[in-house]
C-alpha cells in the first residue's frame, strides 16, 4: 500500500491518545488507544471484555514472534533496561525478550479497534537510566506488563517501543511546559520581507 494506514493517530509507530482524533474521526477526545494491561482495557469500558481479551491475545502472540530475541537476560536488559525482560521459548530454544508493556490499537475505536500491536518498554537509548522525561519515568516506574499502571488521568505520558524498534509516546493530555521569565533585548527582527511579497510559501 502506498498510502498512510491511518491519519491522525498511531502513524509510524507514534500514537497520541485523546487529543488529535478530531483530525479525522468523530472528535471523541476521551478515546484511548493504548492499554497497559487487560484489566485496564476492561476497566476503560471502551471495548467489551471479550474484545479486550482478544486484542491482548493477538498482541501476545505477535509479541513473541516479533520481539527482538536475546540469548541472555542481561543482553536484553542492556537494551531495554533492568527489569524489562522476560524469558520465553522460541523454536525450542530459551530466549529473552522485552516484556509486553501494553497494546496499541491500529485503528480508532469507532472502527472497531483493529489489530492490536504489542508495545514494549522503551529502549535504553530512548529512555536512558535516570532520564527526567516524564514519559520515561512513567515507563520505568510502571515496570512490566502486569502492573497495569493506570492511564488516562491528568496530563501524563508514557514511552514505549514497538517490535520494529520505533519509539512510541502515548499521552493523555496536552504537553505542559513551564514558562520562565528572561530578559528580552529586542523583538521583531524577522518578518519585514513578507510585507513586500504576496506569499512566503510555494
Amino acid at each position: 500500500m502506498k498510502r498512510s494506514t491511518q491519519i491522525g493517530l498511531a502513524a509510524a509507530g507514534i500514537v497520541l491518545v485523546a487529543t488529535t482524533l478530531s483530525l479525522i474521526g468523530g472528535g471523541d477526545e476521551e478515546e484511548s488507544l493504548v492499554y497497559n494491561s487487560l484489566a485496564e482495557c476492561r476497566a476503560a469500558g471502551q471495548l467489551s471484555a471479550t474484545q479486550c481479551e482478544q486484542r491482548f491475545n493477538e498482541a501476545s502472540a505477535n509479541h513473541l514472534r516479533d520481539a527482538k530475541k536475546f540469548s541472555s537476560s542481561s543482553a536484553c536488559e542492556t537494551e531495554y533496561g533492568a527489569g524489562s525482560c522476560r524469558a520465553g521459548t522460541w523454536n525450542n530454544a530459551q530466549v529473552f525478550i522485552p516484556a509486553l508493556a501494553g497494546i496499541m490499537l491500529a485503528r480508532s475505536l469507532a472502527q472497531g479497534g483493529g489489530v492490536a500491536q504489542p508495545l514494549l518498554p522503551p529502549t535504553q537509548q530512548a529512555c536512558p537510566p535516570g532520564s527526567a522525561a516524564p514519559e520515561c519515568q512513567q515507563a520505568r516506574s510502571s515496570g512490566s506488563s502486569s502492573s497495569g499502571a493506570s492511564y488516562g488521568g491528568g496530563s501524563r505520558a508514557r514511552a514505549y517501543s514497538t517490535t520494529s524498534g520505533d519509539r512510541v509516546v502515548a499521552r493523555s493530555g496536552g504537553g505542559a511546559g513551564s514558562a520562565t521569565t528572561r530578559s528580552v533585548s529586542s523583538r521583531g527582527g524577522f518578518g519585514s520581507s513578507a510585507r513586500s511579497f504576496s506569499s512566503s510559501s510555494s
Binding site: I14, T20, R167, R187, G191
Partner: peptide, 24 residues
C-alpha cells in the same frame, strides 16, 4: 504542529514577527 504533537514533541506556534532576541 499537529503532526509534531503526535510525534510526542512539545510544539508551540509563534508568529515570525513576534520572535525576539534574548540577552543571552
Amino acid at each position: 504542529l499537529d503532526c509534531a504533537v503526535q510525534a510526542g514533541l512539545d510544539a508551540r506556534f509563534t508568529e515570525i514577527e513576534e520572535i525576539g532576541l534574548l540577552s543571552d
